[in-house]
Design a protein around this nucleic acid. Structure first.
Lengths: 164, 164
DNA sequence: CCATCATGGTTCGGTGACCGAACTTAGTGC
DNA sequence: GCACTAAGTTCGGTCACCGAACCATGATGG
């Protein structure tokens, strides 16, 4: 990202995290990867990001060890999974901004309970790992109708690829 | 931030959150606000951000209701406090990136226990609110020696102003 | 076996955001 | 009233981002 040149002058781990995921689009790409998007064209269809930028971001995420490139698929690594609490807490915060609209619901797959804003299942009282999260469409999630958005509206487990 | 024009085409609360805190520098400014920085010149001394950019970001954070401008001080609002889990989880993730260096330690002020990566006190098993966090310098935190960095190395409670 | 298409990019010129430096304004101390 | 500081604004130059066009590779089909 380069901030000054980079964030190294900041003796803070937040700055180093932002070097990896702080650029425009990057965190949305990571979110889509959690939702099961893996292919270049699918990221593109869902995000409307310029190809050159998408290419650059995916490459940097691979370099940083967040995604792993397997053939033509970009797959979340275990380091990448560590970003789930970040994506989730930031998303929950964003819900409170204007209308509290919940575009997507996050359920604990084991019991069907909605997980709370700090990532726990209220009935099991455990932290829910990203691959134990079930995704469901929420209110007002009908605006985009590209093929990827439609696939993402199908209930499915997080990190499961949206295509066979 | 404008992404395309803005993130509105993304029916996702993450995108709306990023409109507020997704621009360069913004989250570092928020972090400093948690640490007790309130004045324009102090943000500047600690972050080395161009004045015009700092001015712009502070203004946007005030507009978004994250900070409140009180005279010449920018004070965290309750909406801003909601960003603590985000700042904290992203910071903990950043620690694992290269050397696992912990520049700062976060303790539960009530009992002195270090809070874990999802923001809980292991001994009290409760979520720790930002104003119950005690800040301590950690390893390798001696690199910056501007006055603000020095003040921030003093143990103090989060959100307490670093100046009288 | 060649034409066509789909996928997954790279290249390229124009535009806007970011940068550091210089300048302006408002308040303070003496 | 003059120096000094804090808090910005203004201004060129530079760099990242943007959309559109172009290229490479592998599958499909006649």
């Amino acid at each position: 990202m380069a901030l000054g040149k980079d964030y190294t002058s900041q003796d803070c781990s937040l700055a180093r995290a932002l070097e990896v995921v702080g650029e425009r689009w990057t965190l949305l790409i990571v979110r889509d990867a959690f939702y099961g998007v893996r292919r270049f064209s699918d990221f593109r269809a869902h995000l409307d990001v310029p190809k050159a930028v998408l290419s650059d971001r995916l490459q940097k995420l691979v370099e940083a060890g967040v995604l792993d490139k397997q053939g033509h698929e970009y797959v979340m690594t275990s380091r990448g999974r560590g970003l789930w609490p970040v994506v989730h807490t930031l998303g929950r915060w964003g819900e409170q901004l204007h209308g509290s609209l919940q575009y997507r619901l996050f359920l604990h797959a084991a019991c069907g309970t909605r997980i709370d804003s700090d990532g726990r299942c209220p009935s099991c009282t455990t932290l829910v790992a990203p691959d134990d999260v079930e995704l469901r469409p929420g209110a007002g999630s009908e605006r985009r109708d590209d093929p990827v958005s439609k696939l993402l509206r199908e209930p499915h487990r997080m990190l499961e690829p949206i295509r066979p």
